[in-house]
Amino acid sequence: MSTNVKKKSPYPVIHEQECKGCSRCIIDCPRGVLVMGTALNDRGYTYVTYTGEGCTGCANCYYTCPEPSAIEVYIPRREKEEE
């Protein structure tokens, strides 16, 4: 997979300070691309990280996450991809 294609793929953004490490998103990610880290954030929770590849932009993680600002999903538009 070229870097070009990768940039145009969907991806999650995790805000590590807002994540409480509950793992709801991990068990709900159909691609298994979210993993729990081992480091603690400033508030004392371990937080989720993205493996960097394979996200389909299904938004499961966004919807199942209880924290308003912990995780976002970005999906580049198709048209751009075709340009």
């Binding site: 805000h15 929770y45 209880p66 912990a70």
Partner: peptide, 16 residues
């Protein structure tokens, strides 16, 4: 910037 709810609590999901 985080809720007062426990990790994994349903309240936050509904709030969103």
């Amino acid at each position: 910037t985080a809720t007062h709810y426990c990790p994994g609590c349903g309240h936050g999901v509904l709030h969103k």
